[in-house]
């Protein structure tokens, strides 16, 4: 076997293929028939900022309507840590969500890496700040918080999906999971302003779980949409 046999470049060059002319002409005809000027989407960074704005603009007023009880109970240091961590998490997931709208966009990480990493980081931060305490009616309280968080998340997800529809959504399950996660984080953010229960177990099951449930539900919706599209 010599060098010539192993040269892939040469082999590629030797396998030229042209599309069928009638089919190519048909394709061009279909494209030209609906050819209209289009305005390119804003940059992924601008869209990420818009997503974050949606989340804050919808979640913060909801928290203030329900009562910002957590704000007055948290120390300044804890407040800064909690809200800064949630702001970073929201920004990261908004950037990942905006990248889903553009084919071949640069991504911070794939959703399968980003989502668990963000959740883990938040768990560690919350575990460093809060401790587990005995709590009366633990599951009922957790469910009440989770339900309120999911309601806020549903509104954010709806608003985000209106913007997402403008993009090129190629991977629907991933986009669904990211949308649900992002909206769920907005719900967590709302609860972290509203709920004064700082029992770690409650924060994880009642607040942070909203983001995880959101991601799961979003993935399910995305997968069903992908099945329908096929």
């Amino acid at each position: 076997m010599n060098d010539r046999d192993l040269d892939l470049d040469r082999l590629w060059q030797s396998a030229p293929e042209s599309p069928r002319t009638d089919k190519a002409a048909d394709t061009v005809r279909l494209m030209t028939a609906t050819l209209e000027p289009v305005r390119p989407l804003p940059s992924p960074r601008s869209l990420a900022a818009l997503f974050t704005l949606f989340a804050v603009a919808l979640a913060a007023p909801a928290a203030f309507i329900l009562g910002p009880y957590a704000l007055s109970r948290l120390s300044t240091g804890d407040s800064i840590t909690v809200y800064a961590a949630l702001a970073v998490a929201l920004t990261l997931s908004a950037s990942a969500l905006a990248a889903q709208m553009f084919p071949a966009a640069r991504r911070i990480a794939s959703p399968s890496v980003l989502l668990p990493a963000v959740v883990l980081a938040l768990v560690l931060i919350f575990a460093a700040l809060f401790s587990v305490k005995q709590e009366h009616a633990f599951w009922r309280n957790a469910w009440n918080c989770a339900r309120a968080g999911l309601e806020a998340a549903a509104v954010v997800a709806l608003a985000a999906s209106l913007l997402l529809r403008r993009g090129a959504l190629l991977d629907l399950p991933s986009t669904g999971a990211l949308t649900g996660f992002f909206a769920g984080l907005a719900g967590t953010f709302m609860l972290s302003i509203h709920c004064p229960d700082f029992n770690l177990a409650h924060v994880l099951t009642g607040h942070l779980a909203v983001a995880a449930i959101g991601a799961g539900l979003g993935w399910l919706v995305g997968s069903l949409a992908a099945l329908r599209r096929r």
Binding site: L30, M31, V38, P40, M101, G167, A168
Partner: peptide
């Protein structure tokens, strides 16, 4: 090609 046509607004200069 038809997908490219539908998604052409997502290409950025």
């Amino acid at each position: 090609w038809l997908k490219i046509h539908r998604m052409r607004h997502t290409w950025r200069s």
